[in-house]
Each structure stands twice: as structure tokens, then as C-alpha cells.
Design a protein around this nucleic acid. Structure first.
Lengths: 148, 148
DNA sequence: CGGTATCCTAAAAGATACTG
DNA sequence: CAGTATCTTTTAGGATACCG
């Protein structure tokens, strides 16, 4: 019994499509489930950078913001977006938020063990792409040149 | 000689920040360079799904669009966006586009060897997240419960 | 059939001002 | 200091119509 309606889909692909459909329904490939949301983190403008910086240790809010701005060349992260991204990372268990009871309060952020594990995956993926960066750049040049 | 202006940044982090800054300038962590653009693919709404489906073999344009729509539950990918995403994937060398000289032309898409290598990384990353999906879900539940 | 052009909506991100 | 609220800009994505 097919999981998805395969009418109009090449017979050769029926089984494979159904297997993927099962994976999507049962193994969290839907939006807002861990797989998609984590992939989303990797792709957004700041989350991966935040994880890389927090990989160096614990940071105060203000310092973290400064260094993110400096790393991203001229671009700065707005206070609003940084808080937003840190909240999501904290909610998913990648980032830990420490607050002292001083006035004004001192807030600092660091990676959890889960966050450090994600950092390893990020590093692995960065290395993977870098090993192929020239291939990609050449493919781009070839494609752009072919556009007559 | 520091690569970035470290004034106002905790002394403890100077060296690490500079190392990351070097990596960002020299190893493609900037926007539109392979690392960031590839991470972007992983995070967007359709590219990863396209790679997973093309991992099953060669697809005609119309069929690919149908099956993507079916997989994403109710959501459909618009023709415009599918062409757009496929173009980017083709330009970067992940996807191969075949055109026959029939009238009307028959266009089909498949993964290149580089695309298949990326597919492996995607699968690895999906597995990594799935192994931790329950941890993430529990972190979310705890965070949401704590919001008084 | 596959692609493009045009227009429109929604989501992400930035700027700024204000608060405990 | 860190966070929130409000407003604006930017970008991603969708709907539709039309073309070769």
C-alpha cells in the first residue's frame, strides 16, 4: 500500500519515493522537526557563526555580538536577531545561557555537550566543502561562461 | 598582528577569534563562497529535498515537481522556484541537466558524482540529527515548560 | 513541456528607541 | 547590560499568465 499518491509518477521510482515518504513522515523530515530545523540553523545567516564562536568558550552577550560583527566583514548582527538566534539554539539544547544576579545582570553563553557535538559536525562539513571548493568554483565558472 | 580589530574583546579570546577570522577570509566562510552557499542549500526549503529525490535516479521535470509536492505533505513547490533551485544546484556542479532535441523538449535531472557525494553527507547529517532528535525534543519541552 | 516574466505574500533580518 | 517592542527593508517563495 503506497504511502503517497504515486499516480503520474514513473513506475521505476515508486518504491524509492515511498521509502522516502516513510522517512519523511516517521523520521522527522518535516518542518519544525529536529532534522529540518537543524538544517535550517546551518543555512541561516548567523547560527552557524554563533556556534563556531561559542566553540571557543564562554562569551558575554556584548562581546559575542561585537566579535560576530567583526567576523562577518562589514556586516553586524542586530541585537534583536542575536537574541532571537540564541533563544532558538538554547531551546533546542545546543547553547547554554548563564545569568548572574548582579545589577545590571551579566549574561553569558556557551555550548552544551550537544552543541559541541554539533560543532564537530559543522567543522566536518566545512572541511568537506573546502576540499571541494575549487571543484565548485570551476563548475560555476564553466556554467557562467556557457551562458553565451 | 591581529587580523580583526580585537579592541573590546576579552583577552582570553583574542587568538581564537583571530584564527577564526583567518579561516573566514582565507577558507571560504564568506557569503557566496562554497562553504556558506552549500550550507545555505542545506537550510533552504527545497534544495535538500531535491537532492534526496534525485538520489533515487533521473527525473523528468514534471515528475520531479509532482513528487516533491507529494513529499512535502500539502505544500507544493512552484515551477519558478524549482527551476531556480535546480539552476543553482546545476551551476555549483551538484546536478546535471539533460535536454533532448524533441519538440517539445524533454528535460531531465540527475545528480553528478559531486552531487552524490553531497547526498552522502546529507544522509550522514540526517542520521546524526535523528540519533539526537529525542534529546532535542526533550530540550524543547523543558524550555517551553520553564517559560512560566 | 519546460521555462520565463510579472506580480504578490510571507518570512528573515536590520534600525532604532525604550525598559528593568 | 541585556532584552523587548516597533517599524522598515530585504529576501525567499508562491500564483498566474504567457512563450517557444
Amino acid at each position: 500500500m503506497p504511502i503517497i499518491d504515486v499516480s503520474g509518477i514513473d513506475r521505476l521510482h515508486h518504491d524509492a519515493v515511498n521509502a522516502l515518504a516513510v522517512q519523511m513522515r516517521e523520521h522527522g523530515l518535516r518542518r519544525d522537526e529536529p532534522v529540518r530545523s537543524t538544517f535550517g540553523l546551518l543555512g541561516d545567516r548567523w547560527s552557524t557563526l554563533i556556534i563556531l564562536v561559542l566553540g571557543m568558550g564562554t562569551w558575554r552577550h556584548a562581546e559575542l555580538r561585537r566579535v560576530l560583527g567583526r567576523l562577518g566583514s562589514e556586516e553586524r548582527i542586530s541585537q534583536r536577531v542575536m537574541t532571537l538566534k540564541l533563544r532558538v539554539l538554547e531551546r533546542d539544547g545546543f547553547v547554554c545561557r548563564h545569568v548572574t544576579q548582579d545589577v545590571p545582570p551579566r549574561v553569558s553563553y556557551s555550548l552544551t555537550p550537544l552543541g559541541n557535538a554539533l560543532l564537530s559536525e559543522v567543522h566536518r562539513l566545512i572541511d568537506w566543502v573546502n576540499e571541494r571548493a575549487d571543484t565548485i568554483r570551476m563548475a560555476r565558472a564553466a556554467y557562467d561562461a556557457m551562458e553565451d
